[in-house]
């Protein structure tokens, strides 16, 4: 256990930003804090960084009371969405800043600082740009410099606040892989705040899902997918279709067919059930929800269909390009049958 957050509560006037939040990180872990805006994830990050104090609760790092330390003493490397690079300093000066401001006794020698800066420039693959100013770099390069600057102080924890939020999709994906590689090389415990579920699931060892200042679920990406704790987690992780069914045992019964149901809680009878677009099968002859093909979208590696049922409900389904669905045309009559459905009490 490296970082232990226990029962943290924080309110702003009447609004409870965080309510009884507890979690732990393993040493060297890559943890994502995932939630929509207003879920309290940035508030949590600021508390961890020492930029704010909680109303109650404790935070310890390797047994040390972190709340008793100020932001300067915590030695936390922080990376911001806005990069927050020092605009009047070169890339090298930015990276060296954390070492240069140390008290004389603890400050490494000039040669040591220079060597450290060079090794970090190499790590972020910007060896030739050390003399440039932030304004002369691209967004992706700036964020790499910001990471190097945070790593320069040999942080005990690395906190990243929506670090790729201001970048375009392609750069974002590239930096994501790169960040994970850097993490695996340096082994620094990393906490990453994001509202992008794909990013969280793609990068993190474990994901903490936050909603309205409370933790909905903590788990590995696959666990979140396979065993979502609530409808909120299920909805937040991706698009889904919702229909009503009669639930009993581990099955959901529809008009003329039944499918396996994964039920959270003790639920029977008429219930709202959910299924993912890729957990659906389409065929020209039932069983299934009868409908017409409304649109066919070749979305990257997959084929996406929209099928409108007779009662007006639109189902979204996803298939491989060379499946039966490839032969469908607009306005064809098809049957949509879920492979499995999820049922939640809340």
């Amino acid at each position: 256990m490296s970082l232990i957050v226990n029962n943290i509560t924080k309110s702003f006037s009447d609004f409870a930003a965080l309510n009884q939040v507890s979690f732990e990180t393993h040493s060297g872990e890559f943890l994502a804090l995932l939630g929509p805006s207003g879920s309290g994830k940035t508030t949590l990050l600021r508390l961890l960084a020492g930029l704010d104090q909680p109303d109650s609760g404790t935070v310890t790092f390797e047994g040390e009371d972190y709340l008793a330390l100020n932001a300067r003493e915590r030695r936390i490397g922080m990376v911001f969405q806005s990069y927050a690079l020092f605009r009047h300093m070169t890339v090298e000066q930015n990276i060296a800043f954390g070492l240069n401001v140390r008290p004389a006794k603890e400050r490494p020698s000039k040669a040591e600082i220079k060597a450290k800066v060079q090794s970090l420039l190499k790590l972020i693959q910007l060896e030739d740009l050390g003399k440039r100013f932030p304004s002369q770099l691209s967004g992706g390069q700036r964020q790499r410099v910001a990471l190097a600057r945070a790593l320069a102080i040999s942080p005990r924890i690395l906190l990243l606040d929506e670090p790729f939020g201001a970048l375009d999709a392609l750069v974002r994906k590239d930096l994501r892989r790169w960040l994970r590689r850097i993490h695996d090389e340096t082994g620094v415990t990393t906490i990453f705040v994001t509202h992008d579920q794909e990013e969280a699931l793609d990068l993190a060892d474990r994901v903490v899902v936050l909603k309205d200042g409370q933790i909905e679920q903590i788990g590995k990406p696959l666990e979140l997918y396979r065993k979502p704790a609530s409808s909120f987690v299920f909805d937040f992780l991706g698009t889904n279709n919702q229909v009503t069914a009669t639930v009993s045992g581990a099955e959901a019964a529809f008009d003329g067919f039944t499918v396996p149901a994964i039920i959270t809680g003790d639920l029977t009878g008429e219930q709202l059930v959910r299924f993912r677009p890729f957990d659906a099968h389409v065929s020209k002859d039932g069983p299934g929800f009868k409908g017409k093909v409304l649109s066919i979208l070749p979305a990257g590696a997959n084929l996406r269909l929209e099928v409108q049922a007779e009662d007006g409900t639109v189902f979204e389904t996803q298939h491989a390009h060379d499946s039966d669905a490839s032969d469908l045309a607009l306005n064809d009559t098809v049957y949509v049958k879920p492979i499995k459905v999820y049922v939640f009490g809340t």
């Binding site: 915590r74 690079l85 800043f97 401001v101 600057r149 945070a150």
Partner: peptide
């Protein structure tokens, strides 16, 4: 930028 400087130990 100021917050970043503080977290870096300034």
């Amino acid at each position: 930028e100021e917050i970043a400087a503080v977290t870096l130990g300034a």
